[in-house]
Design a protein around this nucleic acid. Sequence first.
DNA 1: CGCTTTTGACCCGCGC
DNA 2: GCGCGGGTCAAAAGCG
Length: 169
Amino acid sequence: MAGNYPNTNMSDSTFGSLNSPESNNANQSNFEFSDFFELNEWVEEDPAFLIYGYPQTPIRAATEVNDAGGSSSHHEGPGNGDSGNDREREVREKVAFKTKSDVEILEDGYKWRKYGKKMVKNSPNPRNYYRCSAEGCPVKKRIERDREDPKYVITTYEGIHNHQGPSQL
DNA sequence: CGCTTTTGACCCGCGC
DNA sequence: GCGCGGGTCAAAAGCG
């Protein structure tokens, strides 16, 4: 079950370099949300995402977040009739990644500031909450270790960067 | 000196 | 109405 990602090797390649902070490849420091796009594909099918994400929250891409159209009773869970409000227009993208790494701090080229740590009741591993250091940046990052595979790290990105990456400055 | 990190408390939403 | 879970913010300390 589950372990059937079409691009399993991709995560290994794309994030492979990110896993090596020692490499410090400036070229690899910046990656666009476009990469998330493809990941979003398997993320939607990944049952793990439902656990770490929201089973009743439709996944939206970083771009084309046009609420126009997709709305007619997409897949609102039963007893969730009041969900259809305008709050969804707030462009809240959530992308979960499962990466095999020893360190949960994957350098993506941006500066993050840890703003909280929480213990998951169903997991002996704590959940770390990171936020973009830049002000006005609604981007949030959630990092957690797989409760069944400490070798894997679940990274959830939320929002889009409001400023240019520090690497570009 | 500035900024980041760390821990606790507080708040919010939902379920029962 | 209260409890549980999760998430966020705040103040202080440590480090570069």
